[in-house]
């Protein structure tokens, strides 16, 4: 990571949504008075006819978006993960998921990335909550370029999608032209001794851990599991079959997140061993982002030791 460039994935959303809006007049932004923070400023300025701001009223935003979607629009409701996944979740279930409408939730401030804001604004529950609802697709991009590609893929996807972005800048790990397919993991590194399956802001840590392990003679596969649902079960099964030992890493509660989803695949196969690295079922606090990760063992060192602890 010597030449590391850092960008927040919310900026990837903000940049891509403008391009999408230019290309398709049915693409709308529905803001709830945190648009500046969620990077819809350029969209608002350039495409005012496709822009709504319904005030600090998330539940209503979800309903308005559903109504728009019934009329052929593709609304992106833009808010923070904590509010998009919890304040409006029943409206999303009833009015977007149940009727399978084209409502997209674009949520910044995922995981502990709104670090200094404290526990009220951090969100460690969302991927589990949204994954539980039928018809919902759940995505967390790993960097700026991934965010742009996956926002574009979400706009083209038939049905509701939950997208989760980082507030804070995270390393850029992909090249600009990288391809993404919803529901298909990106294999970032091949390996046979163990696999690290990560998503979002922890993918860069997984890559660094894999390099460290490689230096120690351990061959580690790394998957960017950007789509938590539908999970790429084939890619997980391949890790179970080829490597046997899996460490999952996520900026989300270890309950009901990526780690849990991977465990389900392994358990149903009756094979493999999985260790989950993630938020330890505890609320955060106002603190530096890296400190919050460290408090939960989401560090390169702990990922390395977790892999080694699984044995050879």
């Amino acid at each position: 990571m010597s030449e590391m460039v850092k960008k927040a994935t919310r900026d990837g959303f903000g940049d891509e949504i403008v391009e999408l809006g230019r290309e398709n007049r049915d693409i709308l932004v529905v803001d709830v008075d945190i648009g500046k923070s969620c990077k819809t400023g350029a969209f608002r300025k350039e495409l005012p006819g496709q822009y709504l701001n319904v005030g600090i009223a998330e539940q209503n935003a979800a309903g308005v978006a559903a109504g728009l979607a019934t009329c052929g629009k593709i609304p992106f409701v833009v808010t923070y993960a904590a509010f998009g996944s919890m304040r409006m979740v029943e409206m999303i279930r009833q009015e977007a998921c149940y009727p399978h409408l084209n409502v997209k939730l674009a949520c910044s401030h995922g995981g502990v990335t709104p670090a200094n804001d404290g526990a009220s604004h951090q969100c460690i529950e969302d991927l589990g909550i949204l994954s539980t609802i039928p018809n919902m697709t759940v995505i967390m991009p790993a960097d700026y370029h991934a965010a742009r590609r996956l926002v574009r893929a979400a706009a083209a996807w038939d049905g509701p999608v939950y997208l989760r972005f980082t507030r804070d800048a995270i390393p850029v790990i992909y090249d600009e032209g990288v391809e993404f397919e919803i529901g298909r993991a990106n294999k970032l590194r091949e390996g046979t001794d163990a696999a690290i399956i990560a998503n979002g802001d922890t993918v860069c840590l997984a890559l660094e851990a894999a390099r460290e392990l490689s230096n120690r003679g351990v061959s580690v596969r790394v998957l960017d599991m950007h789509t938590v649902k539908p999970l790429d079960t084939e890619a997980v099964a391949a890790c179970v079959n080829d490597c046997g030992r899996i460490v999952t890493v996520e900026d989300h509660n270890i309950i009901n997140g990526l780690g849990s989803a991977v465990c389900c695949v392994a358990a149903e196969m009756g094979k493999g061993i999985v260790k989950r690295v993630g938020i330890q079922d505890q609320f955060g606090q106002s603190a530096p982002y890296e400190r919050l990760l460290a408090m939960n063992g989401i560090t390169v060192e702990n990922i390395v030791s977790s892999v080694l602890a699984l044995g050879k």
Binding site: L52, Q59, N60, G63, V64, G67, T70, P75, E95
Partner: peptide, 13 residues
């Protein structure tokens, strides 16, 4: 409580 917001979305559309 939810249908009115949907109706508003339709009216805006």
């Amino acid at each position: 409580g939810q249908g009115l917001a949907c109706g508003v979305g339709m009216a805006i559309a």
